[in-house]
Nucleic acid binder design. Structure first.
Lengths: 334, 334
DNA sequence: CTGAAAGCGCTTACAG
DNA sequence: CTGAAAGCGCTTACAG
């Protein structure tokens, strides 16, 4: 292994102290009034020797690693992988790297991941909390750790977050189904105490309530890899004219069930999906869906986290509006 | 911010030196023959004070960070996000964290990412190289940096890799189209000097050559966000009976074109896709595809990297076989 | 069995 | 304008 070039090597070559080299490497030569020729010599030597600063040593000294930790439910889920990509790009703009972990919606795992990340001295965290992570989030706030929740929050914890206006999203979607003449509308959601899920359900309930229709919420257990049976039951319920799904995974599982059971959409069953998916484009007919503003969410989360890392203690909470992308799966044919 | 508990604090509380605390925290109490009661006291104090070791300090001293860098083309591409998830899980088994970066198939970006990762002192790298990254890879090998290429390699560089047996994958797929009675088979690939792409094309060429059919390879420019026009042209070519795609992005772009132009599959055009995708399940008819053994690839890559990090200098090259998942899009109807 | 001390590679008051 | 030296929080020969 080629010997690592140290700041000391440059100092020796140029014939100055390591302090000056450090100043120049960090662009503080003006502030520290380092002599012009010295600056040039140091720059040249650094380049010639291909000096690469050891960030670990720097981090230990400065107390900041220029690294953020990102905990999502599952990086292989397209919703989270797209979000991760946006967060990566935005963080890079601030010279930050991203360490990613998947919690699998298990609070034990997210807790363990967060501890690992903190031991690695990440400067801040962007967290998609799992059920039961309120304890973790409280403890992070108590410890003054820069934190932004994304996609989800806890109603009774005052914490930075960036998330969808979930209530409005499903309220509007339900209303569109109602406007299109559907009465027997079922909402399919995960059984969860998490706010975002409850808000999505509440949006549906309010819309149904506003016109006095009977509500029907079907709750699917999370962590069940086999969604086939419950989904078939839900889809085949003769008392359902339209289904609104609460997440992308549920939507796609639902579409598999519809397809498996050869139901005609929207004649036999109208459908509104959640999140964007290529599957919605290929389904016959194209599926109407609730699209989240991923780019804005990811960018805002990073920006808020940076504020937080830089000492802004104000509460930053952003609720973003979804876009209702209307196609043919929710339209009663005349 | 609650004051961080240091190893020194525990030493003070228990009334021993920091050395003993360090030994116990690292499970070396047997080896170092630390007194039993002392061990207990240290353990208790560590727990009571909720001691969390500062990995940065540890890393600076030991020279290893227990972190690996993963550079993929784009983490939001399902192929890479699935791979990333597997790599994450496998790395965690070895107590390693993963820092991820997306290169966008640009060697400038992958170079910059790799430097950033090395400055952060990652113990090793798993890299999906871009065109032109042979220079980078050579330099990494020269610098003795633990490295495993994944998904792609360079023929003239002797480097660890884990990848698909690409030649066999497309040879077999092409043969299946030939066996099903197709003669005018087109392969759609990216214009690239990368081995994996050339092998995929060569597999096709060999199969076609073996039966003496005229070949037709359509090369699409990478980095072109707008695949619409070239894909429409390719798909609508009246001289094409069947199309074999070289990647998942090409496959899906192709399916959009097929769908946009209302071609009947496989009557008007037979199709074989690359990689797995939910889109293939919903397309009518279900699309036949070449599936890569993602789990094995990711696990093997991490295992090989660990060997490498632990000083195994032997060359580790794994070519894995794909699975041909046959459905209806490649079968001539009788 | 245990402690004092050096050192990982930086940054940064401090002194001149 | 520049240098000597302390210190970030660990680990680890070394000495006893």
């Amino acid at each position: 292994m080629a010997k690592k070039v140290l700041i000391k090597d440059i100092a020796t070559v140029v014939g100055v102290s390591t302090a000056l080299v450090s100043y120049v490497m960090n662009g503080r030569e003006k502030e520290k009034r380092v002599g012009k020729e010295v600056v040039e010599k140091i720059r040249k030597a650094a380049k010639d020797l291909n000096y690469q600063p050891n960030q670990i040593a720097r981090s230990l000294r400065t107390g900041s690693t220029n690294t953020i930790g990102l905990v999502v439910a599952d990086i292989s889920n397209p919703f989270f992988s797209h979000l991760a990509r946006i967060i990566e790009d935005e963080a890079n703009k601030y010279q930050y790297a991203v360490i990613i972990g998947s919690s699998d919606e298990r609070n034990q795992k997210s807790q363990a991941l967060v501890e690992t990340l903190l031991n690695r001295q990440v400067d801040g965290l962007i967290l998609v909390p799992s059920e039961g992570d309120d304890v973790l989030v409280k403890s992070l706030i108590d410890r003054d750790i820069p934190l932004v929740l994304i996609d989800r929050n806890f109603e009774n914890i005052s914490c930075n977050f960036v998330m969808l206006n979930n209530y409005k999203a499903t309220f509007d979607a339900t209303m569109s189904l109602i406007d299109n003449g559907y009465r027997k509308i079922t909402m399919v959601a995960y059984r969860s105490s998490l706010e975002h899920m409850k808000s999505r359900i509440n949006g549906y309930l309010s819309a149904m309530g506003s016109v006095g229709y009977t509500v029907s919420v079907k709750l699917v257990e999370p962590h069940v890899s086999e969604l086939l049976h419950p989904m078939d039951e839900i889809i085949l319920n003769s008392d359902t004219e339209a289904v609104l799904f609460a997440t992308n995974t549920l939507s796609i599982a639902g579409l598999y069930a519809v397809s498996r059971n050869h139901l005609k959409v929207p004649e036999q069953l109208a459908i509104v999906g959640f999140d964007k998916s290529e599957v919605y484009d290929f389904f016959v007919p194209p599926v109407t869906y609730i699209e989240q503003p991923l780019a804005e969410m990811g960018q805002k989360a990073v920006q808020n986290l940076m504020e937080c890392i830089n000492g802004n203690n104000g509460l930053m909470q952003n609720s973003l509006d979804s876009q209702f992308v209307e196609r043919l799966s929710n339209k009663k044919l005349l």
